[in-house]
C-alpha cells in the first residue's frame, strides 16, 4: 500500500499542503484536479523527484521518503512520455533493466513480452521521432512496466490523445490493472476518472479536498469546487429553513426549493443533478415536490444526452435523452415545466 501522510512542499508561488491519502494494493486510484492544482507535484514527490518539506511517503509500511529515486520501486509515466529520442524503442525499454541480474537473452525476452502485451512489437527497432502520440505513450508505459513497479504512476496519460486512441489506451490501462497492478493516475478529466477509478481523490490548490469511491465523490461532492469540477451545474448558495419539519432552501433571489434533510437550518449549498430533473410541456401531477415553470435558454448536446438550460428564476440544467428532446419538441424560447423530487435535492452546509 502506498501512503502519503501530511506531505507539504512550499515553492515560491505554490505549495502542497498536508497532502494525505492512501492507495491500496490493486487499487486504480485517480487524483482528480484542475491544471495547476499540484497533481504532477504529488506524483513527482512519490517518485522522489521532489523532496517534501515535511510529511512521509511510505510503501508497504516502509518510509521511502529518504530513499533515492532509483530505489523506490515506483514507476512514473510522464505526461509528455519522456521517451529517449536517441534510443530505439527496444533500447528505451531495455534501459530500465540495466543493473538487473538478467542475461542479455532474458532481457530481450522481457522486452518482446512487454512489447507484445502493449502491441508495439513491430516498433521495437524504430526511433521515437517516427512514432505517433499513442505509440509513444505505449512505449513509455512498456519502459516503466518492464521494471515491475510496485505502484505505477501515470501523469495525465490520455491528455494528448485523440478520442479513438483514448479509448484504446483506457482498455489497455484496465487490462494492466486487472492483472493486479496498483495504479495512481492523475487527470483533470472527471469522465476519465469515472471510467477507470476504483478510488478517487480531488485535489485543489495543493490540498486534497475529498476522497472516496467514485460514487461517494460524484454523488456527494463535499464542496462547491468539487461539484462544479465534476460537472454538476445545478449548484447554488442557499439558506435552509425548516418549519414544521418541512424544509425549503432559498437561493439569493428567493427561489424556493423543497428539500428533505435533517441538516440544521443555516447557510449552505443546494445541489440538483441534471439527471434528476425531468421536463414536460404542461403542468402535470407527479409525486415530485418541486415543479418550476421556465423558459428554455439553450440546448447543448453532450456525450450522455442533451443538456437543457432553463431560466426558472435561477438557471437550471436538465439532462435528458435526445428522444425526449424530440418528443417534447423543445427549442430555445419555449416554455416548459421542470419537476424534481425533494429527496433529489441535496443540501450541503457551509
Amino acid at each position: 500500500m502506498l501512503e502519503l501522510i501530511n506531505i507539504t512542499k512550499r515553492f515560491a508561488d505554490f505549495c502542497l499542503e498536508e497532502v494525505t491519502f492512501s492507495v491500496g494494493e490493486g487499487d486504480y486510484f485517480i487524483l482528480l484536479g484542475e491544471s495547476g492544482a499540484g497533481k504532477s507535484m504529488v506524483l513527482e514527490t512519490i517518485a522522489g523527484l521532489i523532496t517534501p518539506d515535511s510529511g512521509t511517503v511510505s510503501l508497504d509500511g516502509q518510509d521511502i521518503t529518504p530513499f533515492k529515486i532509483q530505489h523506490r520501486k515506483i514507476g512514473l509515466v510522464f505526461q509528455d512520455h519522456a521517451v529517449f529520442p536517441h534510443l530505439t524503442v527496444a533500447e528505451n525499454i531495455v534501459y530500465s533493466l540495466h543493473g538487473n541480474a538478467l542475461t542479455k537473452d532474458e532481457k530481450q525476452e522481457k522486452v518482446i513480452s512487454i512489447a507484445n502485451e502493449l502491441g508495439i512489437k513491430e516498433l521495437l527497432n524504430r526511433k521515437p521521432g517516427t512514432l505517433s502520440g499513442g505509440e509513444l505513450q505505449r512505449v513509455a508505459l512498456g519502459r516503466t512496466l518492464v521494471q515491475q513497479p510496485t505502484v505505477l504512476l501515470l501523469d495525465e496519460p490520455l491528455s494528448s490523445l485523440d478520442t479513438r486512441l483514448k479509448g484504446d489506451l483506457r482498455r489497455l490501462l484496465r487490462a494492466i490493472h486487472r492483472k493486479g497492478q496498483t495504479i495512481l493516475h492523475v487527470t483533470h478529466d472527471y469522465e476519465e476518472a469515472l471510467s477507470l477509478a476504483t478510488k478517487i481523490a480531488v485535489i485543489h490548490q495543493g490540498r486534497i479536498i475529498q476522497s472516496g469511491t467514485p460514487a461517494e465523490v460524484f454523488l456527494h461532492p463535499k464542496s462547491e469546487f468539487v461539484a462544479h469540477f465534476i460537472g454538476v451545474k445545478n449548484f447554488f448558495e442557499a439558506k435552509l429553513l425548516t418549519t414544521n419539519q418541512v424544509s425549503y432552501a432559498f437561493t439569493h433571489n428567493n427561489f424556493q426549493v423543497r428539500i428533505v434533510t435533517d441538516i440544521p437550518d443555516g447557510d449552505g449549498f443546494i445541489l440538483i443533478r441534471g439527471e434528476d430533473i425531468f421536463l414536460s410541456n404542461q403542468p402535470v401531477e407527479t409525486s415530485a415536490a418541486n415543479t418550476f415553470k421556465g423558459i428554455v435558454i439553450e440546448i447543448v448536446p453532450n456525450k450522455t444526452g442533451v443538456d437543457v438550460a432553463i431560466d426558472a428564476g435561477i438557471e437550471l440544467h436538465a439532462l435528458i435523452t435526445r428522444e425526449s428532446l424530440e418528443k417534447l419538441d423543445l427549442v430555445a424560447g419555449k416554455t416548459c415545466w421542470m419537476h424534481c423530487k425533494a429527496t433529489a435535492v441535496r443540501f450541503i452546509s457551509k
Binding site: E44, G48, I69, L76, F78, A82, F84, H98, G99, T144
Partner: peptide, 27 residues
C-alpha cells in the same frame, strides 16, 4: 536537453552518473 528526460531516466532506476552518460551527454 529536456530535464524531464533526465528525471525519467532516474525513475527508471538509473543512477545520476548513468543518466549523465546515457541521456544528457548523448543528447
Amino acid at each position: 536537453v529536456p530535464v524531464r528526460l533526465e528525471k525519467a531516466a532516474l525513475t527508471l532506476g538509473a543512477s545520476p552518473y548513468r543518466v549523465f552518460f546515457t541521456v544528457s551527454m548523448p543528447l
